[in-house]
């Protein structure tokens, strides 16, 4: 554990709390992509199967359970409790275009050809692109509520901070994981356009609105 990793994990937890609070307080999931949330739930389900096989630390186990529970809760709130507020017409990204390539790539490029490792690899690849339906939705409507922008900023920061964690671990511990590093770079690049808009607009008190 190092400061970058801890900061990344906290940004991730913070993002999830912002999203759950937004949905709960406004009793609405307008502007949130249910497809991205389903993909994230799938990411955690396939990655954290090792909860049953590998014990790392209490911190590690608690965080894994937290991510599984919160993503399950988000999907429940969107598709069951506040279903009427779900903006499905704007959530039209075809997720099979993400699922199929990630599955094929994880079968081809992995650390070890075992069920657990392929599923772990699939989750890493899928996480890197899971935000695309959400970004697509923002681009379709041309705007995002401030609270949604804060959520996206915290969620994007998490993998960016992990990049620093990987640099640190490479230098200090000589540990590196090319699959995680490559996917983390892709994931962070996908947020760059959003980061730019967030810093130039939302932080100056304006609503996130895309140029027409």
């Amino acid at each position: 554990m190092n400061i970058f990793r801890l900061a990344g994990d906290l940004a991730h937890v913070f993002a999830i709390i912002i999203l759950l609070l937004k949905i709960w307080k406004t009793r609405s999931c307008a502007g949130i992509s249910g497809k991205s949330q389903i993909l994230f739930a799938l990411v955690y389900l396939t990655r954290y199967l090792d909860l049953f096989t590998t014990y790392v630390s209490l911190y590690n186990s608690v965080m894994k359970v937290l991510f599984l529970a919160s993503s399950g809760a988000t999907v429940y709130l969107m598709y069951v409790k506040f279903r009427a507020t779900y903006d499905r017409n704007h959530d039209s990204f075809r997720i099979e275009f993400l699922l199929v390539p990630c599955l094929l790539l994880s079968l081809l490029i992995n650390h070890e050809f075992t069920v657990m490792e392929v599923l772990w690899t699939f989750s890493i690849y899928l996480e890197s692109v899971a935000i695309l339906p959400q970004l697509f939705m923002v681009s379709k409507t041309g705007e995002a509520e401030s609270i949604t922008s804060h959520y996206l900023f915290a969620l994007g920061s998490y993998r960016a901070l992990y990049l620093l964690n990987w640099v640190y671990r490479y230098i200090v511990e000589s540990h590196y994981d090319l699959i995680a590093i490559f996917a983390g770079i892709v994931q962070t690049i996908l947020y760059c356009d959003f980061f730019y808009l967030y810093i130039t607009k939302v932080l100056k008190g304006k609503k996130l609105q895309l140029p027409a």
Binding site: R5, D9, H12, D50, T54, V56, S57, N60, M63, K64, F67, H111, E112, E117, W120, Y162, N165, S174, H175, Y176, D177, L178, I179, A180
Partner: peptide, 10 residues
């Protein structure tokens, strides 16, 4: 060859 997944990172 890299060191791979150490199951620690989330």
């Amino acid at each position: 060859e890299d060191n791979g997944n150490d199951h620690d990172e989330l």
